[in-house]
Nucleic acid binder design. Structure first.
Length: 670
DNA sequence: CTCAGCCTTCTTTTT
DNA sequence: GAAGGCTGAG
């Protein structure tokens, strides 16, 4: 009885107050909230309250009585979606239950689970990540005769992937992006792609690209599905539209056919994902695609001081391909950004950590500070230094939590339970066993092909003696797994760990305690799930990082420094931002320097980095860099620093004490 | 032929 | 720290 009352209470929206839209938003933003019916393009500069606008629009629609299930919100990360929902909830005072929100891949998965049968795929497919996809391709390449000096699986994957996401055929992708490769490779690559497609389909596997491609195919080929979905989604909101690709733009277009209430938000100056086929022309041609598009512009920056903004504006104006625009700051004037050349990476790390200590003494919290870099490994020296000085931090970038080898090992056991056809997961498990290698695992996989797990575990004498022993060992784990409830993920993992993996980790890795701790965290994560299917989808589609754990342990667990790649820092802001390793070749990246299009993207990346800062911006670069091929080399400051007017920043000269003699000795003669 | 182990090499950005 | 190449053992 009491339970029932409680339920009624929580289901009922209790609106205690009316949201004061006009009071809480500026004119530019308010117009979007009130008038965004039909196709709308919101061009929102950095720090102009883009997320705020989306959140208020969402709240407004819900307040107007639009049902949550009729709204589709597509974001760049699932984290962003969660945050927006949470903020909307706080505004409204109730939970918008049934709202469709998440990344394109996430929503694609949800829809394909329901409709993929139309495309004669099994709805119990598993999702594979990039690494899995590359491993499958690697094996396909290896098994083909005469493919000795062939591009690596990595390259093949990029070509295929780019072709799918850009909607261009392999030939075009070759001439536009991989012109340095021999065109004779085109046919073999197409052939490999066909085998790859078949292998995935036979094993009920979808890769990231399939989640988008098949979704679009579904909408194209089945008008009734398109009709149903486009009727359903009365309002579609898309965040970060500048980073959508060809397929995503088409999906949006199909979904909006009935109601045409499609609101896209973006900033062409912040488009930084063209390497995975994001296409700025999506945002540029949006008004042509949808007639009667209303264009809104958010040009007031609420984030950064005029000094920081001026530097950013001065940098981005060097890009030819852009909507010219002027962002103006409403924040009080502050300090000019500061440029700090250091002798080497170690001194750079030392300076930053020292400065951070000073800032915290001036009563700035660590969580108001971030260090941003172009590539994951740029932060190596800094991490060492932070550990030395016991400054707690979280690093975002590089390997993600669920991509770590030990987690993939454990999850692979769950994957074969869910989908016994998953040859990638099987390969992984089999190769963990002593005595089973590349060839042995292939033999076993072909022997168990198309069998259910309860049949597989009865296989006993089919293999040659050498394999038989290893297989029998594996059965000791597989048999109890088969006997356990599939959706009791905790129990399944318990078997894997106790029967096998704890021992395996201890014997094979020196950092086994850390790895086991990660697995412990995984087990905690399983408590949120009562469905193996959902659990497995989420582990491959979620973008959480291993480092959501603070190192070293902080006195106050809420207060830590952020280290992040610039890509990961999109949409975020801090009072103080350090952008490091600003040397030519590191940032901009060496491979981008000869191509104008790519150097512009690097510049946008620099723009994104600088506009994360609210109050203080420090730009640092080491004069000596370590390169794999040349050892220690002198480096030039980044092109992006060279092209800036020197008046935009103040230069800070460090003393040279901390350069050790032995560093100099390793220098090559230049 | 097959596997394991040691050594070298290389790291852009990611759903 | 992880992947690929090489070598020796079974």
């Amino acid at each position: 009885m009491s339970k029932k009352i409680y339920k009624l209470k929580s289901d009922k929206p209790k609106i205690n107050f009316k949201i004061d839209y006009a009071g809480e938003l500026n004119d530019e933003q308010y117009k979007v909230i009130k008038n965004a019916e039909g196709p709308c393009l919101v061009l929102a500069g950095a720090g102009s309250g883009k997320t705020r606008t989306l959140v208020y629009r969402l709240a407004y629609l819900l307040e107007q009585g639009v049902k949550p299930k009729n709204i589709l919100l597509m974001t760049f990360t699932n984290k962003a979606a969660r945050e927006m929902i949470w903020r909307t909830e706080k505004l409204l005072g109730f939970k918008p239950k049934g709202l469709w929100a998440g990344t394109f891949h996430h929503i694609g998965n949800r829809i394909l689970r329901q409709y993929i049968k139309h495309l004669s795929y099994n709805s119990n497919y598993s999702i594979i990540d990039n690494e899995d996809a590359k491993n499958l391709l690697k094996e396909i390449i290896r098994n083909k005769k005469g493919y000795k000096n062939f591009p690596k699986a990595n390259v093949i994957k990029n070509i295929i992937s780019f072709s799918i996401n850009s909607g261009k055929n392999i030939e075009t992708v070759f001439t536009e992006k991989f012109s340095y490769l021999d065109t004779e490779l085109i046919e073999p690559i197409k052939n490999i792609n066909n085998i790859y497609k078949n292998r995935k389909k036979e094993a009920d596997l979808l890769d990231y690209d399939d989640l988008l491609f098949l979704w679009l195919k579904l909408l194209k080929k089945f008008p009734d599905v398109k009709k149903y979905l486009s009727n359903k989604f009365q309002y579609i909101l898309v965040d970060e539209y500048q980073d959508t690709n060809h397929i995503q733009a088409n999906i949006v277009e199909y979904l909006a056919t009935t109601h045409k209430n499609i609101l896209v938000v973006g900033d062409d100056a912040q488009s930084i994902y063209s390497f995975r086929a994001a296409d700025i022309s999506n945002i540029l041609t949006f008004p042509k695609k949808f007639t009667d598009t209303q264009i809104f512009k958010l040009k007031t920056n609420y984030r950064s001081t005029p000094e920081i903004l001026e530097l950013a504006n001065n940098s981005i104006k060097n890009n030819i391909n852009q909507f010219p625009k002027k962002l103006s700051s409403v924040i009080d004037s502050g300090e000019k950004p500061i440029l700090i050349p250091t002798q080497n990476n170690e001194q750079q790390a030392e300076f930053i950590s020292q400065k951070i200590i000073e800032l915290t003494k001036e009563r700035y919290d660590l969580k108001d500070i971030a260090v941003l870099f172009r590539a994951d490994f740029h932060a190596l020296e800094l991490e060492l230094e932070l550990n030395k000085k016991s400054i707690p931090y979280i690093k975002r970038g590089g390997i993600k939590f669920f991509e770590q080898a030990h987690l993939k090992d454990v999850i692979s056991f769950l994957k074969i339970i869910y989908n016994p056809k998953d040859e990638i997961a099987w390969t992984r498990i089999l190769n963990l066993q002593k005595g089973i290698g590349r060839i042995g695992s292939q033999k076993i996989i072909s022997a168990i092909k198309n069998l259910e797990l309860n049949k597989i575990i009865t296989i006993k004498n089919q293999f040659p003696a050498s394999l038989k022993k290893s297989w029998q060992e594996l059965l000791k784990i597989l048999i109890p797994l088969e006997e356990t409830d599939k959706n009791n993920i905790g129990a399944l993992l318990d078997i894997v760990l106790k029967q096998f993996y704890i021992n395996f980790v201890n014997l094979n890795f020196e950092n086994s305690p850390k790895r086991l701790e990660d697995i412990e965290q995984l087990i905690n994560f399983t408590h949120n799930y009562d469905s193996l299917k959902k659990f497995l989808s989420d582990t491959t589609l979620t973008e959480d990082f291993q480092a959501e754990r603070v190192t070293p342990t902080a006195a106050n667990p809420e207060d830590y420094l952020i280290l992040s790649t610039i890509h990961q820092a999109k949409g975020l802001e801090w009072k103080t931002v350090f952008v490091i390793n600003l040397t030519s070749g590191q940032f901009p990246h060496a491979k981008s320097i000869e191509f104008e299009k790519e150097i512009e993207e690097e510049r946008r990346l620099f723009y994104v980095a600088c506009t994360r800062a609210k109050k203080f911006l420090y730009l640092t670069y080491p004069l000596i860099n370590y390169s794999q091929t040349y050892g220690f080399i002198f480096s030039k400051p980044s092109e992006f620093l060279q092209e800036l007017d020197g008046n935009l920043y103040s230069e800070w000269q460090l003393e040279n004490d901390s350069v050790s003699e032995d560093t100099i000795e390793y220098l090559p003669e230049v």
